[in-house]
Every structure is written in C-alpha cells, then in structure tokens.
Simulated scan of single mutants.
Amino acid sequence: MSEPILALEGVHTDIAQYHILQGVDLQVPRGGVTMLLGRNGVGKTTTLRTIIGHWQARQGRILFDGQEITAIPTPARARAGIGFVPEDMGIFSDLTVEENMVLAAASGPLDPARLDWLFTVFPPLKTFWRSAAGTLSGGQKQMLSIARAMAEERRLYLIDEPTKGLAPAIISTMAGALRDLKKQGASILLVEQNFPVARALGDTVAVMEDGRITWTGEMAQLSADAALQERLMGLSLEAQR
C-alpha cells in the first residue's frame, strides 16, 4: 500500500485549560474520502483545526505527504497543498463572490477551466458572481466556502460538516460536488453528521470518542454492521435513511 497522504501520530491538543485531543492516531489514504465520525463534542473539529494549524499540537506529530508539518504555520500548510473548509464557512461577507474566489487562489489568477467546473457543480456562484457574499442564502454561502477551497487543486481537502443545516436539494448539490472532486483523485478528510451522505461518499472511516480514534476501517464494513454502528456512535446508519 502507498504511504498515506496524511498521518497523525499520538497528537494531543489543548484549548485553554481543556485537553481535547488525547493521543489521536489517524491515517488518510491517498485518492479517497476518509470520513471522521463520532458524537458531537468528541474532537472532530479540533482534529481538523490542528491539522491546518489553527490549534497547535502540544504533543505528537503530523505528517503530510511524508513531511512533518507539526510546527509550521497555517499559511505554509496551505501552500503545501492543504485546503480547509471550516464549519463556520470563513467567507468575506462584504466582498463579492468573485473577490472571495480571487483571494482563495493564492498562486495566481483563477484557472478558467477550473472555474467553469466550479460553475457547473455550483451554478449559483455564476449567477451571483458580482454580488456581495453576505447577500447569499445559507446554502449558497456554503457552496462558496467549499468552492474557495477548490479554487486551486489541492492535494488534501479538510472539510467540516458541509451539509449541516442545509435543505435536501442543497445537500444533493454538495454531495455531487464532493463526488466530482473524489473522481478527480483528490484526498479528502470529511467530518459529516449526515450519515447517508457519509455512506455515499466515504471509502474509509475513523470514529472518534473522547479525543481519540477508537475504530478505523472501510465504510462498506461499517455500513453493513448495524450493531457496530450502534456501539461506536449510538445510532444506526439505516435509521438515518
């Protein structure tokens, strides 16, 4: 098997006086979607923010494409090829959709072919290209947030609950865009509470509990075992259909 695109080895992260990540060991294979699942408050968002450098790991190592990135600043991690979509979207409301996208393409002008693809998977972005991002609906803002991370081709995408609170039609659009990204060979680490979406997109799974990874395996294995789902997450994927 090839070396994983991302590996966390015994990662501990503190936020103020709270010890959130308590020795996380995690591997993200190349060219697939790894779902990071678990109940609310177990450390999933903190894991993503530690990988991108918003929170600093107190102990352990983070390896990206075989190189240790544990101590380097967030901009350097982004330049290395990591895209991040935060749960709070992270868009600039006073800027237009176009300006948000231009800022996201740090390496230079937006690639026309990639922009055409983004317009195909997220049609509202083209419609509201000259509009202030703050005037978009919640679903449209989430589309813009994901599109910003996709403005340039990244080697790894970290995406935090992209379908949270969205209408079913918008969720379908989001899932289609992520499926397209997966087909392009992207490596994705995705936190998602919508289990049908997780099941449809995920190749591998890591389940968190109390700041640790407690189970890893194939999505097909988790999807086929209702008792395992109940034990790991307290609910069945089948119940979420």
Rank of each mutant, 00 (worst) to 15 (best):
D116W: 05
V42C: 15
A133L: 11
A239R: 10
L115I: 03
D116P: 02
H19T: 12
E153S: 14
M208H: 10
L110R: 04
T135K: 11
E230P: 02
M89I: 12
G211P: 08
A7L: 12
V28G: 04
I188W: 01
S145L: 00
S131C: 13
A133W: 05
A80N: 10
W215D: 10
F64Q: 05
P123L: 06
L228T: 09
R58W: 07
A198I: 06
I20M: 11
V42T: 09
D180E: 13
A151P: 07
P112Q: 11
P75A: 02
P196H: 08
D210E: 15
G38N: 01
A220F: 02
T70E: 07
S2D: 14
P123G: 05
R49S: 03
L222E: 03
L178G: 06
E98A: 15
S236N: 14
K183V: 10
Q56R: 15
P196S: 12
I72N: 05
M35A: 14
W129S: 01
D14W: 13
E98G: 03
D14K: 14
E153P: 11
L190V: 03
D14Y: 14
G139I: 08
L37C: 11
I82S: 02
P75N: 10
I20T: 06
T216K: 11
E152F: 09
A167H: 11
I69E: 01
R148S: 03
G32T: 15
L232C: 09
V33D: 13
G60M: 04
A177M: 07
G41W: 09
S145T: 00
I188N: 00
I91V: 09
R179M: 10
G43W: 00
A169Q: 13
Q193W: 09
G234W: 00
G217W: 07
R61H: 11
E209I: 06
F64T: 05
T120A: 14
S137V: 04
R231V: 15
S223M: 04
G31L: 07
W129N: 03
I171R: 05
L235S: 15
D160T: 08
I15W: 08
A198D: 06
R241S: 14
I171K: 06
M1R: 12
E152P: 07
L189V: 11
L95K: 09
G60W: 03
S137L: 04
T47S: 08
I52P: 03
L95I: 12
A80C: 14
